[in-house]
């Protein structure tokens, strides 16, 4: 019996550790632990590669957090605060398309949800403070906004639309951690099914016709609430169980 294999999109970037300063393929372990804790086996997919064939080896995929998406992808001019990562954009938009086409179970986290919306033909807000007038959605880096002593920045409520898949998974209300300054404006072919009640910023999108395609704007991997990862792993396990029959046929 093997565990479902879950790909995690990763960074290729300059990082510092100890006295080293190297170009590395990397991802915070919080994502890896979230996958392993919910019964999957995580592998990291670096954004350097011209192909999407890796999709065929996976049972599910997580599009992880990271920098901003180039607004050229939805036909907008770049905002001064927008900080893009072209290598990840190219690779992840291509991978997202391939994953959705293959109906591979997909979870989008933060930037990953935004990639999902853009591939679905949607658009993003490039700098939320311009729109809502505050920094509620952007916690100071390195902080835990859900900690008891944290400031209100980066912690807010989410209300979930009744009847949605997200509602079945998460209930009607939750409190989340946020580290973003961009957000989904129009969700394209996805349904927006969760919002921050204070400012109506979209926090959850899902695709009603896919096996599992869910995007969340917060960072569940940095909390003890791993329900969205568990749901992805479950969908991936279901798919993995079916796959050998398809191959035999």
């Amino acid at each position: 019996m093997r565990r479902p294999l879950i790909g995690l999109t990763a960074y290729a970037q300059q990082v510092q550790y100890g006295s080293n300063d190297v170009m590395a393929g990397m991802l915070p372990m919080t994502y890896v632990r979230a996958v392993h804790a919910t019964g999957g086996r995580a592998v990291l997919i670096t954004p350097d590669d011209p192909g999407t064939d890796v999709i065929e080896s996976l049972d599910g995929i997580v599009f992880a957090g990271g920098g901003d998406i180039d607004p050229a992808y939805w036909g907008a001019e770049r905002h001064p605060e927008t900080d893009v990562d072209p290598a990840r954009d190219d690779a992840e938009l291509m991978l997202m398309r391939a994953a959705l086409d293959a109906d591979l179970p997909v979870l989008g986290v933060c930037r990953g949800m935004q990639v999902m919306a853009v591939v679905g033909g949607g658009t993003l807000h490039q700098h939320l403070p311009d729109i809502i007038g505050n920094e509620r959605h952007r916690a100071a880096s390195g902080t835990d906004p859900l900690a008891a002593d944290a400031s209100a920045y980066g912690r807010h409520d989410v209300v979930v639309q009744a009847g949605s898949r997200a509602h079945a998974l998460l209930g009607s209300h939750l409190t989340v951690n946020s580290f973003h300054h961009q957000a989904v404006d129009k969700p394209g072919s996805f349904d927006a099914v969760g919002w921050c009640p204070d400012d109506r910023v979209i926090e959850i999108i899902e695709h009603p016709e896919r096996a599992f395609a869910l995007g969340v704007q917060w960072h569940p991997e940095r909390t003890p609430d791993l329900r969205v990862f568990a749901a992805l792993t479950e969908a991936a396990a279901l798919r993995a169980g079916v796959q050998p029959i398809a191959i035999a046929a």
């Binding site: 290729a12 990082v15 550790y17 190297v22 170009m23 590395a24 393929g25 990397m26 991802l27 915070p28 372990m29 919080t30 890896v32 990291l44 670096t46 350097d48 390195g142």
Partner: peptide
């Protein structure tokens, strides 16, 4: 941040 990483080479 504790990270999984490998030199890009």
């Amino acid at each position: 941040l504790p990270s999984a990483l490998v030199p890009y080479d």
